[in-house]
Structure formats: structure tokens, C-alpha cells
Design a protein around this nucleic acid. Structure first.
Length: 466
DNA sequence: CCTTCTGAGTTAGACCTCAA
DNA sequence: TTGAGGTCTAACTCAGAAGG
């Protein structure tokens, strides 16, 4: 009946890279730890570091008896934090129960042999699922780790098969289909299972993107707005402002009112631009959607706050068209500090993972927003030129280097790549420009990045015919 | 079979302190 | 004045188990 399904799975498999089977553990404890810790967790970030921690610190725990005795000795609730560096108290009990079940069913074999024997008996899945905390996926994964050729029907495998044959499949059906597919391909099903898993658990794989419609990363994100009318927005704004004032009168610290502050800002802007509010909590990038389709990021501060900066998420700034920054006074009154395009806002931002605008820049906008003068001169060497320059914030560009100077922060790009160790690169540029560098090359260089950068700029400016 | 629950991990956003 | 280094909280995701 589902020969067609198997054909489609075979076809789809042709487009993903086939990887090796999993490597098997020599330490029986690791089989159990790996499988039990993998439940409900992202493998690479959660399980792998903990396994390594255990392997490094407790290599002597290498038999089921020792594992069981250790857990009993420290108490199952303490085992994970102590031996796995994992703050997950309940997992010790699951590990213990699993180890004990294997231990009484190993039929006089050595640990690994015995575990493998048990895993290959007809009753294995029925028995192992009696352990509280082990379901079908973990049971099958245990079997795979013991060398049994089977499938772990986890979310990735189910997703792959369901997407491939365009219908939902159960765990059992997934196992069945994949096993038969492997047989036809004359390939081990565990290897196919692992290949699919590796492919599907990678968030960048093409299949997922195609099926979910998230093709290129330039694709605009979905804009969801709520249904508040302008009347609703004004009404809410009044109520929030009143509540804000009341809380202040009750001596609530203003720092405790961030939820109110933020909401008041968003409502104020939504009213101002006759727009709507973003629907999602943690909406990427913007808070308000204007009536002419602009996505506006709103930042609101309270006047007595000690914060001197407004932060923007570097990962989501591309989803923003305009930036609105507000200040709310203790009496609930709102003052506009900044409202402009995101391009102009970016001229105020410094990038340190998160993008920050210093508050004081907002009272001196002219200085930062005036278009920078393009001098564009051929200066030194081949193509060094000053692109732009203003009071204390400018860039220098040549074929290879790009220098960003913003106050004391100096950054260098080489061939478009941001250099991590700035100072050695600055010395190198100095060398290229014939600037004398006294640093002998041992011990820490006392010359500041700033001063190197200034020397470079000075040299280039002097050489300029400008 | 489908829904709910679980709990560590991740992300977003706001604010704080210190130092140059 | 403002950059660099944080902390803190809440909301959300992930991937599986348990429950009705």
C-alpha cells in the first residue's frame, strides 16, 4: 500500500548527505547517560558538554554497578549536579532506574554485552518503557547506542517523513517506513536515521526552509498587528498614564514600572502615527506599525533612570524602518527625544553586540546627523583615502582596511572582516604608512588604540592634497 | 491519538556601575 | 560624556513524556 511512500522517501534521501552511523560507547554508563539526557533537550548544546564533563572528571565510573552505587551513595537528586554539571535533579532517578533495569537483565554477560542482549530481546521496549521517564524515542535510542539496527522516531525523523509523504505519521509508522526503505536501499537503518537526524536538526537545512516558506533571509518577516482602534489606543494610553502617576505617588521606584513605561511609549507612538500595535510579544525589531506601513521601534525611558543608553538588537534592526525615543516624566508627561529613520538612528549607534545609543547624543543631534564629508582623495600607497570625517567620528578606507573611530573605540576591518585583535593590526597599518612604532614586541604595548588611530589619521590627512 | 505538561536553554529588553 | 562591562526578568522554544 505504501510502496509509493517508500519511493518518495528514497528520493528525498538522495538529496541529503549520508553520514556515518553513531559511534558506540565502550563505557556502558555513557550509553545510559547519553540517551537519558537527550530527552527533550537540544543535543549539541545540552548533552554533549555534560557527557564530556563526565568523561573528563569521572572516567573511573565505567560499570553499571559503579554507576548504581554512585547514584545511591550521593542520592539520585544530587547526582546530575555533581557528576554531570547539570542542574536537573529529577534526571538522576531516571538514570538509576534505567541502569538497574539493564543490570538485572544482562543475563550473566559483561555489561555492554548484556545490555545489547537485553536490547535485542522481544520484550525490551515493553520493559524499558516501564521506567518512569523513558518513552519510545529514548527506548529506541538506547537500542541504537547498543548497536541494534533500528530507528529513533524523534521529532526530526517524524517531521522528515511527514513532510516527505505529505501526511502525518505516527512514531510506529515512521519506524516501519524507514526500516523498509533501508531494506530496499540495502543500507543500515540506523545510519539513515542518523543522517536524517543530522540533517533535520540543522536549522539551516534547505528542506525545512522550502517547506515552511522561509526561503531567503532577506524575506520580510511576518507583520502581525492587533486590532486596537485609535480610540482604544488613546483610552489605554490615558489609563496607563493615570496608573503610572498613581504608582509614582505611592513611592513605587520608577525602575519597577518598566512595563508601564514601555507600554505608554508604544501607545503614545501608535497614537501619534495613527498606527497599530505589534501583535507578538517580543515582536522582532519593532513595536508599532504605522498607517503608512513603517515598522517603528519605540524606546521609552523614565527621567530619573540611571540608564544612559538605549539598546537595539543587532539581530533584528533590519526589521525596523523608524526609531522613536521618548522620555516619560514622573507626572506621566511624555517628551519626544528622537524620531527619525533607522538610517539616521544608526549614525548614533555604537555596535557592541547590541547596538546602543547614548542618551546625551540625542541632545546634540546635529553633530551626529550632519552628512559626513566625502573627501575621497588618493593619499598614500595605492588607494588609501579618507571617506568621511567629522568632529571625532570618521572612517578611513583603502583596498584592504577600513578604520572606524568613535571616541575611544577603534575598530578595524580587513577585507570586510572585523579584526578581533585591533592593536597589532593598527601597528601593521602604521608600518604600511611609514609611521614610526616604538613598541619592541614584548610585554603589553602601552600605546593606546586611540593614539595609534589618531597617528594614522594624521598621517593620511597630511598627505592629502585636500 | 491528541493535548498538556515539563524544565533547561535562548532571546529580548531594560537598567545599573564603573572607568576612561 | 559615553563606552564597556555587566545583571535581571519574562516570554518563548525545544523535544520529549505523560495523561485523558
Amino acid at each position: 500500500m505504501n510502496n509509493k511512500d517508500i519511493e518518495r522517501i528514497k528520493q528525498e534521501l538522495a538529496s541529503i548527505p549520508l553520514v556515518d552511523e553513531l559511534t558506540y560507547y565502550e563505557n556502558p554508563c555513557l550509553v545510559i547517560l547519553d540517551a537519558v539526557m537527550s530527552r527533550s533537550r537540544v543535543y549539541e548544546t545540552t548533552v554533549v558538554p555534560r557527557l564530556n564533563y563526565f568523561k573528563t572528571n569521572y572516567p573511573e565510573i565505567n560499570t553499571l554497578d559503579m554507576l548504581i552505587n554512585t547514584i545511591n551513595k550521593v542520592g539520585s537528586e544530587n547526582f546530575a549536579s555533581k557528576f554531570l554539571n547539570y542542574q536537573f535533579a529529577d534526571i538522576g532517578k531516571v538514570i538509576l532506574d534505567t541502569a538497574m533495569l539493564f543490570n538485572i537483565n544482562k543475563n550473566n554477560f559483561e555489561d555492554l554485552e548484556g545490555m545489547k542482549y537485553f536490547a535485542s530481546t522481544p520484550n525490551f521496549y515493553k520493559e524499558i518503557k516501564k521506567v518512569n521517564g523513558i518513552g519510545i524515542a529514548t527506548a529506541r535510542y538506547l537500542a541504537i547506542l547498543l548497536g541494534i539496527d533500528t530507528v529513533k522516531p524523534d521529532i526530526h525523523i517524524i517531521r522528515f517523513i511527514s513532510q516527505t509523504i505529505d501526511r502525518k505519521v505516527s512514531e510506529e509508522e515512521a519506524v516501519d517506513l524507514l526500516t523498509r526503505t533501508a531494506k530496499e536501499m540495502d543500507e543500515s537503518v540506523a545510519r539513515i536515521d542518523n543522517s536524517i537526524w543530522q540533517f533535520m536538526s540543522n536549522p539551516n537545512n534547505q528542506l525545512e526552509k522550502e517547506k515552511t516558506g522561509l526561503m531567503a533571509n532577506s524575506e520580510p518577516i511576518e507583520v502581525r498587528v492587533n486590532k486596537m482602534t485609535l480610540f482604544d489606543i488613546r483610552k489605554s494610553l490615558e489609563e496607563y498614564q493615570a496608573m503610572f502617576k498613581r504608582e509614582i505617588q505611592r513611592n513605587v521606584p520608577i525602575g519597577e514600572l518598566t512595563h508601564l513605561t514601555g507600554r505608554i511609549g508604544e501607545l503614545y507612538v501608535a497614537d501619534k502615527v495613527k498606527g497599530t500595535m505589534a501583535f507578538d510579544t517580543n515582536q522582532k525589531g519593532f513595536d508599532v506599525f504605522s498607517n503608512d506601513d513603517k515598522r517603528i521601534s519605540v524606546k521609552t525611558t523614565s527621567s530619573s533612570s540611571g540608564s544612559h543608553q538605549f539598546f537595539f538588537n543587532a539581530n533584528t534592526i533590519e526589521f525596523v524602518d523608524e526609531v522613536f525615543i521618548l522620555k516619560i516624566d514622573r507626572d506621566g508627561e511624555i517628551q519626544e527625544l528622537f524620531y527619525d529613520s533607522v538610517d539616521n538612528a544608526r549614525k548614533l549607534m555604537v555596535d557592541r553586540g547590541k547596538l546602543a545609543i547614548s542618551r546625551s547624543k540625542l541632545s546634540n543631534l546635529e553633530k551626529y546627523l550632519t552628512d559626513k564629508v566625502d573627501i575621497s582623495k588618493e593619499i598614500i600607497g595605492q588607494n588609501t583615502s579618507i571617506l568621511s570625517m567629522d568632529y571625532h567620528d570618521f572612517e578611513i578606507k583603502d583596498m584592504n582596511f577600513r578604520l572606524f573611530i568613535n571616541g575611544n573605540v577603534i575598530r578595524v576591518e580587513e577585507n570586510g572582516v572585523l579584526i578581533k585583535s585591533v592593536k597589532p593590526k593598527l601597528r601593521e597599518i602604521c608600518g604600511l604608512l611609514g609611521i614610526e612604532v616604538t613598541y619592541p614586541g614584548s610585554g603589553s604595548d602601552p600605546t593606546t588604540n586611540n593614539s595609534y588611530a589618531r597617528k594614522i589619521v594624521k598621517k593620511i590627512s597630511n598627505s592629502s592634497t585636500h
